[in-house]
Design a binder for these strands. Structure first.
Length: 521
RNA sequence: GGCGCAUUCGUCUAGCGGUUUAGGACACCUCCCUCUCAAGGAGGAGAUCACGGGUUCGAAUCCCGUAUGCGCUACCA
């Protein structure tokens, strides 16, 4: 299905860091556009001067860039339908507000905030069905208007909502939806500071940016009849609507800071991969079938369709994200083999430099005493040992620091075992130390490649496994001692490969350190 | 309060009138593999399809009510 005329937009307002729900909306729009071969536009809705937040624009753009959602028109790239900041299109909105005024579809309202507050308070007290505005200024006569105008208050322009009838529109996800017009109030189109409200601006912009499909969060559903009526007042054909299910926190409420990480960028900083994030987000409210979970970006684009978007709000499930990130980390194919593109096997594909990303985390989170720059060659060597044991890149610096630091810090108790006497432990470690000393000097050669590393590991096993028997220990018992001595932990990658990667000098030094600790017992 | 939308395992979901003893995934449990931890493999437990009425030979699937949840109800988006 290719339709180059498709034009969709992501229209965030720069009021803070975009959270997962915002970016999921952007993603769905983007997937839809890319699938259709249409255009994806980013438009900044900065019409509320008081809510503007410094740095928000950059964080929106950075979030999109991070998960690799690119835009055809918008900030930084421009386009034929700009400007793409609503604050730069005020003349347009004023012109069309004026047109509505002249056509009898809108009116000026001089009510003060105080009067509005009072009115609402009274309504609430009388338990009347809440209406946001009592239409006080809708039927002013000429004399009253002149008087108010002379009073110097700058008016807002309100839409003259039809008082009767119904408005029905079709939602691509939910079907036909009908509202009674008398439920709709005379919303403000143009604020007294000359800026438009969302309602006016989004209609005018979607019209002039030739937007064909409006895909936005569910919370906009109730505003849609007002928008449809506005289109009608202008005598414009409305675009197609699709209201996306919301993403909720674990307590089923709207996602916010209270739920821990809410902004997308925080996930980048925690060590999630953008490819995994896109994959996970795509599955929040959309599914291809009853089994496929792992999709490359290309596969997502190829299969995405509005028809398969679900109606119900989804709860963000970090456990599943963790799992998926792990799948990407350990199964990643750095470059998609050409032959696989059309195959039915869904394979995680990462187009970015994973090791480079890891290097950045290590540089940032490893203790200061670790020398910089960290060797990429070394990281590539140990990568196979850690990739199966992490769910995020950030964890490497925390759980595998023994690959990098000099002095291991751990409780001496870890070396002791209920079944073994301290003497036995000391004897075993000394014997192991001797074995390593006796080992061929080849071990520890500089510039070891993966093959050499495997050889070293095998060599170590050939020496150390028989040693256990000689000491009257089970292999596992000896290995545990060495593991603690060499990594400072009872849980680590396979012993011999770890020792091979660490190198003879460090291993022997650490075993001596362990013996030193035991002497103090 | 009013209006709107939604309601399948704890969570994400498949299902679009009979192929369903409701399928998959995450998480959980057991076993296998194993030098630990993971990963992987094999199993298991887990959903009276919110509830109540219809329609139909037959309903998770269609209709109506109720309940619950969420959203909107600003000179915010």
């Amino acid at each position: 299905m290719s339709d180059e005329s498709v034009r969709v937009r992501y229209a965030p307002s720069p009021t803070g860091y975009p959270h997962i729900g915002n970016i999921r909306t952007a993603l769905f729009n983007w997937l839809f556009a890319r699938h259709a071969g249409g255009k994806f536009i980013v438009r900044i809705e900065d019409t509320d001067q008081s809510r503007k937040v410094d740095g928000a624009l950059e964080s929106i753009l950075n979030s999109l860039r991070w998960i690799r959602v690119d835009w055809d028109e918008g900030p930084e790239v421009g386009g034929d339908y700009g400007p793409y900041f609503q604050s730069e299109r005020r003349d347009l909105y004023q012109k069309y507000a004026q047109q509505l005024l002249e056509g009898g579809h809108a009116y000026k309202c001089y009510c003060s905030a105080e009067r509005l507050d009072r009115m609402r308070a009274e309504m609430a007290e009388r338990k009347e069905s809440m209406r946001s505005y009592d239409r006080h200024c809708r039927e002013l006569n000429e004399r009253e208007r002149v008087e108010l105008e002379a009073g110097g208050t700058s008016p807002v322009i309100r839409f003259k909502m039809p008082l009767a009838g119904q408005t029905t529109f079709n939602d691509l996800i939910r079907g036909d939806i009908t509202f009674d017009n008398n439920e709709l109030d005379d919303l403000v189109l143009l604020k007294s500071d000359g800026y438009p409200t969302y309602h006016l601006a989004n209609i005018v912009d979607d019209r002039f940016m030739k937007i064909t499909h409006v895909m936005r969060a569910d919370e906009w559903l109730s505003s849609t009849p007002r928008h449809v009526l506005l289109y009608r007042a202008f005598d414009w054909e409305p675009p197609l609507f699709a209201h996306l299910p919301m993403i909720l926190g674990p307590d089923k409420s709207k996602l916010s800071k209270r739920h821990g990480a809410a902004s997308l960028i925080e996930y980048r900083d925690m060590g999630y991969l953008p490819e995994a994030m896109m994959n996970y987000l795509a599955l929040l409210g959309w599914a291809l079938d009853d089994k496929t979970e792992i999709f490359s970006q290309e596969e997502l684009i190829r299969h995405f369709s509005i028809r398969r978007i679900s109606k119900t709000a989804a709860i963000f499930n970090k456990d599943k994200l963790d799992w998926m990130n792990g799948v990407y980390i350990r199964n990643v194919v750095i470059e998609a083999p050409a032959a696989k593109v059309d195959s039915e096997a869904y394979t995680p594909v990462i187009t970015t430099d994973l090791i480079q990303q890891l290097m950045e985390f290590l540089d940032k989170h490893l203790p200061h005493e670790v020398n910089r720059p960290i060797s990429r060659e070394y990281v590539e060597q140990i990568w196979p040992l850690i990739r199966e044991r992490i769910t995020t890149l950030r964890e490497v610096a925390d759980n595998f620091d023994f690959f990098f630091i000099d002095e291991l810090v751990y409780e001496t108790d870890l070396l002791l075992d209920k079944k073994l006497t301290t003497d036995t432990v000391v004897t075993a470690l000394k014997a192991a130390l001797q074995s390593l000393t006796d080992l061929s000097a080849d071990w520890d050669r500089i510039g070891r490649d993966a093959e050499k590393l495997a050889e070293d590991a095998q060599l170590l096993e050939e020496v150390l496994r028989p040693l256990a028997a000689g000491l009257g220990l089970k292999a596992g018992e000896l290995f545990k001692l060495l593991r603690v001595a060499v990594t400072g932990s009872t849980a680590a990658p396979p012993l011999f490969q770890t020792m091979a990667a660490l190198g003879r000098v460090r291993c022997m030094k650490r075993i001596r350190a362990a013996l030193g600790k035991l002497e103090l017992v």
